[in-house]
Amino acid sequence: MNKQVQVHGALFTVALLYGANYSIAKEIMPDYVLPFGLITIRVVSATLVFGLLSLLLTKEKVTSRKDWGRIALCGLFGITINQLSFFSGLNLTSPINASLVQTISPVVVLVMSSFLLKERIKVYRMVGILLAGLGAMLLISGSANNSVEGHMLGDLLVLLNAASFGVFLVLVKPLMQRYNAITVMSRVFLVGCLGVVPFGWGQVAATDFASFPLSIWAAIAFVVIGVTMLAYLLNVWAMKYASPALVGVYIYLQPVFAILIAVSLGKDTFTWQKALFAAMIFGGVYLVSKPKKPALPA
């Protein structure tokens, strides 16, 4: 299979998982597990699984102090700040609001890529990001009129989450050029776990797991396996072959999936207007991923 097809398939899957996460995680919080408790369950589980996979499959070591410093920053921005702010924010605001605020992340990716990776921002790529962002905002704003108003603090926390994840996407790219994806994620989650556990362990201990119905266990399994392990692994693997801007712009597909899931549950309706906005998002993704034209022979 063509590598570009694999990359887009991986990023598409990530967007679908994250899009579903907005509604599924809200079923868990706060009635069954408080936000920091859910984060701790999610991150500790992923740390153990990625650590075991690293020992069994790669046995690769990170010896460079510079790389460990970057891993520490990835753990801080990609796990600790990212997870604590997202689930706290989602607990306070609506899935619609949260998915709308998430669209700021690609802007952070572009700015940080220019600053840290010295990547030049192409005009057509900027147009693609603006087109996709406009489509996402129009799509969600049309649905937000029929949704519960989000709490400002929740929106601000999701904004912090989006910015921190954008920084993570840029910071992790050089590591993906030197190490296996499992090696990177096992170290990043270990660092992130050390930052998350002090905040959430008390909430985990206070959770009444015996009261969980099967649907909540299934929702937790989806959050841990799908949204954490699979999504992060696919994201960092894609970073080997895609620019941070392309990875970031796929975040714009999350609100599309959030709307489609709401429609399937009978909580929203799909119109031609929404179809137009979705087409704008896919058009923006195309422009961002558009390959450079080969230089003409002299």
Rank of each mutant, 00 (worst) to 15 (best):
C74H: 06
V43Q: 04
G69L: 12
L57V: 13
I79H: 04
L92I: 07
I81T: 00
S45F: 11
E27F: 10
L56N: 10
S99H: 05
V62D: 06
L73T: 10
A98E: 00
I71S: 01
V49P: 08
C74E: 01
P30Y: 03
N91S: 15
K26W: 06
L38K: 04
L53C: 12
A46H: 01
A72E: 04
S88I: 07
L52C: 13
L56F: 15
P95G: 11
P95I: 04
V101W: 01
K66W: 13
L76K: 02
V49A: 10
G69E: 09
Y32K: 09
S54Y: 08
L38S: 04
V44L: 13
L53W: 07
W68Y: 14
S54I: 03
P30C: 08
A25S: 14
P95V: 08
T63M: 13
G78N: 02
N82I: 08
K66Y: 14
F87K: 00
I28P: 02
S54D: 12
F86G: 00
C74F: 07
I81C: 03
T63V: 14
L57A: 14
I28K: 00
R42Q: 06
N82C: 13
I39N: 02
F77D: 01
R70D: 05
G37F: 02
L55D: 08
E27V: 11
F87A: 03
E60M: 11
G75N: 02
L76R: 00
K26I: 07
A46Y: 06
N91P: 06
L84D: 01
I79P: 02
E27Q: 15
S45K: 06
E60A: 07
L92P: 04
I79A: 06
S54F: 05
V101G: 08
L56I: 15
D67E: 12
F36L: 12
I81Y: 08
L57F: 14
G78E: 01
T47V: 11
T103V: 15
L55V: 15
V44I: 15
S54A: 15
N91V: 01
F87S: 03
V43A: 09
L53A: 08
A98W: 02
G89H: 08
L84A: 08
Q102Y: 08
T58L: 11
L76A: 03
S64M: 12
G69I: 09
Q102R: 09
L56V: 14
I71V: 15
D31N: 14
T93P: 03
I39G: 02
K66G: 14
C74L: 04
P95L: 07
A72H: 06
R65Q: 15
L100F: 10
E60D: 10
T63I: 11
G69R: 11
G78V: 05
V44Q: 09
L90W: 01
L57S: 12
F87C: 00
L92K: 06
L53R: 10
L52P: 07
I71M: 12
S64E: 13
S64Q: 13
K66L: 14
V62Y: 06
P30W: 04
K66Q: 15
V33Y: 00
L52S: 15
S64C: 11
K61S: 15
E27M: 14
L84V: 12
Y32D: 05
Q83L: 01
P95T: 07
G75S: 06
K66I: 12
G69M: 11
P95N: 07
I79N: 01
V101L: 10
L57T: 13
V62G: 10
F86N: 06
L57G: 11
N91W: 04
R65G: 14
